[in-house]
Simulated scan of single mutants.
Amino acid sequence: MAVSETLLALMEPRPLHGYELHQRYGALLGLRRPLRSGQIYSTLQRLQRDGLVTAVGVERSGGPDRTLFQVTEVGTSGLERWFFEPGGVQQYLQPDLYAKVVLALLTQRDAVRVLDVQRVAHRALMREMTKIKSSPTSGRLEVIAADLAILHLDADLRWIDSTERRLANLRDDIEGHAALIQEADKLR
């Protein structure tokens, strides 16, 4: 998630201070990806340095003074571009898992076990997301976030199952690649 753009969008309707940004982020987007308050304040400093936000006042309540930040015209233009550019599409949503399977095959480790361990973790998270989705206390934002997670987890589980069915052939492919690498190393 693009933290800078997220904060800009949260404060675009009206000036906010860091604590309010932290609360709004948590309420709207923090279901699975909480944002530390320190990250919010360091991002606000960068946004201000880059001219994307400006300090427009100080709010004084019972606690410490809180600087209010407002999005500048430059920040609004950047935010507009960000909204309508496609997000980064990754070829592999689980690159670590892919690497683990390939390297397990290469090093004669139990690739089925690698897949099984990940399958168990994915299913546990899927159950957690399903509980959130079906809970009467979950709001609509939590439900659509849980739906997104469930669909990604389901796709990963299908990849895990498909890969497990192909392991024998993959092992042959890996051994073939390893032999080519060894031959190339001998020529050096």
Score class of each variant (00 low, 15 high):
2 A>K: 08
3 V>T: 11
3 V>M: 04
5 E>N: 15
5 E>R: 06
8 L>D: 06
10 L>Q: 12
10 L>N: 05
11 M>F: 11
13 P>R: 07
14 R>M: 07
14 R>W: 00
15 P>S: 06
15 P>T: 07
18 G>T: 10
18 G>N: 11
18 G>D: 13
21 L>A: 10
22 H>S: 09
23 Q>I: 06
25 Y>D: 11
29 L>Q: 04
36 R>D: 14
40 I>C: 07
41 Y>M: 08
42 S>M: 06
42 S>A: 05
42 S>Q: 12
43 T>M: 13
43 T>D: 09
45 Q>P: 02
46 R>M: 14
46 R>A: 14
46 R>Y: 12
47 L>K: 13
47 L>Q: 10
48 Q>N: 11
49 R>A: 10
50 D>C: 06
51 G>N: 09
52 L>K: 07
52 L>E: 06
53 V>H: 04
54 T>M: 14
55 A>S: 13
56 V>T: 14
56 V>L: 07
59 E>P: 01
62 G>T: 13
63 G>Q: 15
63 G>W: 01
64 P>E: 12
65 D>G: 03
65 D>V: 01
68 L>A: 01
69 F>L: 10
70 Q>G: 11
70 Q>I: 02
72 T>Y: 05
72 T>M: 10
74 V>H: 10
78 G>P: 06
85 E>T: 15
86 P>Q: 05
87 G>I: 03
88 G>M: 14
89 V>Q: 07
90 Q>N: 08
91 Q>M: 15
92 Y>H: 11
93 L>P: 00
94 Q>H: 09
94 Q>R: 07
95 P>E: 11
96 D>Q: 14
97 L>K: 01
98 Y>K: 05
100 K>V: 00
102 V>C: 08
102 V>A: 10
103 L>Q: 01
104 A>D: 05
108 Q>A: 10
110 D>E: 09
110 D>F: 05
111 A>N: 01
113 R>E: 08
113 R>H: 14
113 R>V: 00
121 A>F: 05
121 A>R: 03
121 A>M: 03
122 H>F: 11
129 M>S: 08
131 K>V: 09
133 K>P: 03
134 S>K: 03
135 S>Q: 07
135 S>R: 08
136 P>Q: 02
136 P>A: 04
136 P>I: 00
137 T>W: 10
138 S>A: 15
138 S>Y: 02
138 S>N: 13
143 V>K: 15
145 A>K: 11
145 A>I: 09
148 L>A: 12
151 L>D: 08
151 L>F: 08
152 H>L: 13
153 L>D: 02
158 R>C: 00
158 R>Q: 04
160 I>D: 03
164 E>H: 08
167 L>T: 06
167 L>P: 04
169 N>K: 08
171 R>V: 02
171 R>P: 03
173 D>Q: 12
175 E>Y: 07
175 E>H: 09
176 G>A: 14
178 A>N: 05
179 A>F: 03
179 A>S: 04
179 A>R: 07
181 I>K: 04
182 Q>N: 09
184 A>C: 01
186 K>C: 12
186 K>F: 06
186 K>L: 15
187 L>M: 01
